[in-house]
C-alpha cells in the first residue's frame, strides 16, 4: 500500500512535468508540423536559469530557509528568460525557413539544439560541471497518508502544473489569440485570409511553449536538485520522453499531451517499482511503439491521412 501510493505520487508529479514539456512539442507541431528538437534544451535551460537566478540572489545558501515567494520569483524569471529565448530562436532560425521543405527545418532544429547544448557548456556560461539546485522550498513533508510522506515539492509540482494547464486551456479556448492559434493550426493559409497575422501567432506559440518548458525545468530541478551539465544525456532523455508523451497523446492535441505525460510518468514509475528499475526507459519506448502500431494518431488524436 505504502509503495503503491509513493509510486503514484512520483508518477503523477513526474508525469505532470512530461506533460508540461510535451505541450511545447505538440503546440509547435500543431502549427508548423515539425518537431522542435531544441525544445528539450529550453527545458534544460529552464532548470539552469533557475539555478543561476537563485545563486545570484544569494538564495543558494543552505542555511537560509526557502519560501514560496522565492520559488515563485525564480519560476517567473526562468519562464520569462526561456519565453524570450523561444521567441528569438523562432525568429532567427525557423522563420526564414517558412517556405522551405520540412526536412530543412527539422535539421535546423537539431542544429539549434546542439548549439544550445554546446555553447551552454562554455566555461564562462554554464560550464561542464554538474551543480546543485538550492532548495527554495522547505524540503518538508506536507502530510503523511498511510505512511506515505507527501513532500511539499510534489504538491507544488502538481499544483503549479494544474494552474499552468488551466491557464493554457483558458487561453486556447476562451481568448481571441487562442482561437487564432487553433485556426492557424488547422489551416494556416485560410487563417491568414481571415486577417490573422500568422507569424505573430507562431511567435506567441513559441513563447508559450518555451515558458512552459522553463516551468518544467524549474520544477524538475526542485524535485531532483542534482543539476546535470547542459549537454548531459539526461536532458535529452527527459525531452525525448516528453516527446513520446506528445505522440502517445496524439501530436497536435493539447489535452493529449497532458494525458500522455501522465501516462508516461505512471508507466515509468510503476514499471520501475514493480518490475525492474533498470528497464524504466524500455517501458516508455515500448509504449510508444505499441501506440504507433495500434493507434498511430495517438490515444486522443484524430486519425489524419498524412504521411510525415
Amino acid at each position: 500500500m505504502t509503495k503503491l501510493l509513493q509510486t503514484l505520487v512520483d508518477g503523477v508529479s513526474v508525469g505532470c512535468l512530461y506533460g508540461l514539456i510535451a505541450l511545447g512539442y505538440t503546440m509547435v507541431y500543431g502549427i508548423l508540423k515539425f518537431i522542435n528538437f531544441a525544445h528539450s534544451d529550453i527545458f534544460m535551460l529552464g532548470a539552469w536559469v533557475s539555478f543561476i537566478v537563485a545563486r545570484a540572489l544569494g538564495w543558494a545558501n543552505p542555511d537560509q530557509p526557502g519560501s514560496l515567494g522565492k520559488a515563485l520569483f525564480v519560476l517567473a524569471a526562468a519562464m520569462l528568460f526561456c519565453g524570450v529565448l523561444g521567441f528569438i530562436i523562432e525568429r532567427l532560425a525557423y522563420r526564414p525557413l517558412r517556405r522551405a521543405p520540412r526536412l530543412n527545418v527539422l535539421i535546423t532544429a537539431i542544429g539549434v539544439s546542439l548549439f544550445i547544448q554546446n555553447t551552454g557548456q562554455l566555461p564562462w556560461l554554464l560550464g561542464t560541471q554538474p551543480q546543485r539546485m538550492p532548495a527554495l522550498l522547505p524540503d518538508s513533508t506536507l502530510l503523511t497518508v498511510a505512511e506515505v510522506q507527501i513532500r511539499q515539492v510534489d504538491v507544488v509540482v502538481i499544483i503549479t502544473v494544474l494552474v499552468l494547464m488551466g491557464a493554457l486551456e483558458w487561453l486556447v479556448h476562451r481568448t481571441k489569440v487562442g482561437r487564432a492559434m487553433r485556426a492557424v493550426s488547422f489551416d494556416t493559409r485560410v487563417a491568414s485570409l481571415m486577417g490573422v497575422p500568422v507569424d505573430r501567432v507562431i511567435s506567441i506559440t513559441f513563447v508559450i511553449g518555451s515558458s512552459l518548458a522553463a516551468a518544467a525545468g524549474f520544477l524538475y530541478a526542485s524535485k531532483y536538485p542534482g543539476l546535470n551539465q547542459p549537454a548531459h544525456a539526461t536532458w535529452i532523455l527527459l525531452g525525448l520522453k516528453a516527446f513520446v508523451a506528445a505522440v502517445v497523446g496524439g501530436i497536435g492535441d493539447i489535452r493529449g499531451a497532458m494525458f500522455g505525460g501522465l501516462l508516461i510518468g505512471m508507466i515509468e514509475f510503476f514499471g520501475a517499482a514493480y518490475l525492474s528499475p533498470h528497464l524504466k526507459d524500455v517501458y516508455v519506448f515500448s509504449l510508444l511503439i505499441l501506440v504507433l502500431l495500434v493507434r498511430p494518431a495517438g490515444l486522443m488524436g484524430k486519425p489524419v491521412l498524412e504521411k510525415v
Binding site: K176, R179, A180, R182, A183, S185, F186, D187, R189, V190, A191, L193, M194, G195, V196
Partner: peptide, 22 residues
C-alpha cells in the same frame, strides 16, 4: 477561398469570430 476553408475544429460561432479578427 476555393473549397470553403472552414475551420472544422472550431464551432460555427468561432468561425464567424475569426472572420472579424482584423
Amino acid at each position: 477561398p476555393e473549397g470553403r476553408g472552414i475551420f472544422a475544429n472550431l464551432t460555427v460561432d468561432e468561425n464567424l469570430e475569426i472572420g472579424a479578427y482584423s
